[in-house]
């Protein structure tokens, strides 16, 4: 029992750094002309999703917050707030969908995660910009979320065996 908890702790730390590194590397990707500014594949969502299915509530939220802190330190307060809002929203959604409901597949979870992430960011930009004009982005972001969500979902499915190996399979396997 004790070893499981220590394992969880180390795996949380490992995943935290993994998600931070992924979101950092992602910022080097070129922004494509047809995508709205700031639209990213959201690879670190993969980590959050896996954590939601296997680690638990506090661990998932911790990963999300750590990522937001990193965004805050490297890209400023607004970026930090955006990452926090998007991350917490998609984290909670994933905890519910993957941790409790357990009816969707990886792809659906990926799409939901991306949608929630973007929704959180949109809310923050609505508050900081103070103009409802930012919601004009919503339709585009939804389509982008579907595309990136399918990609991250597929990657998640492919990565699950490796993740399982990484964390050791002593407690419930997804």
């Amino acid at each position: 029992m004790k070893s499981v908890k220590i394992q969880k702790l180390t795996v949380t730390a490992l995943f935290t750094s993994l998600s931070v590194v992924l979101s950092f590397l992602e910022s080097f990707l070129p922004t494509f002309a047809f995508l709205p500014p700031g639209a990213k594949p959201g690879f670190s969502n993969i980590i959050v999703m896996f954590s939601a299915m296997s680690l638990g509530v506090p661990q998932t939220l911790f990963i999300v917050c750590a990522k937001a802190t990193f965004a805050f330190l490297t890209r400023g307060a607004v970026a930090g707030l955006m990452s926090l809002a998007g991350g917490v929203l998609s984290g909670i959604c994933m905890l519910f969908v993957l941790g409790k409901l357990k009816v969707t597949g990886c792809v659906g979870a990926g799409v939901l995660s991306a949608v929630c992430h973007n929704l959180g960011q949109l809310l923050v930009s609505f508050i900081t910009v103070g103009s409802s004009a930012v919601f004009g982005y919503a339709p585009v972001l939804l389509v982008v979320s579907v595309v990136t969500g399918v990609i991250t979902g597929a990657i998640l499915r492919a990565a699950i065996p490796y993740f399982n190996k990484l964390r050791g399979a002593e407690w419930g396997m997804p």
Binding site: M53, T104, G105, C106, V107, G108, G153, R157
Partner: peptide, 14 residues
């Protein structure tokens, strides 16, 4: 093992 795709996924995307 987690499934890649379920009918719910289609619903979500749609």
């Amino acid at each position: 093992m987690k499934k890649l795709f379920t009918k719910w996924d289609f619903v979500i995307i749609l």
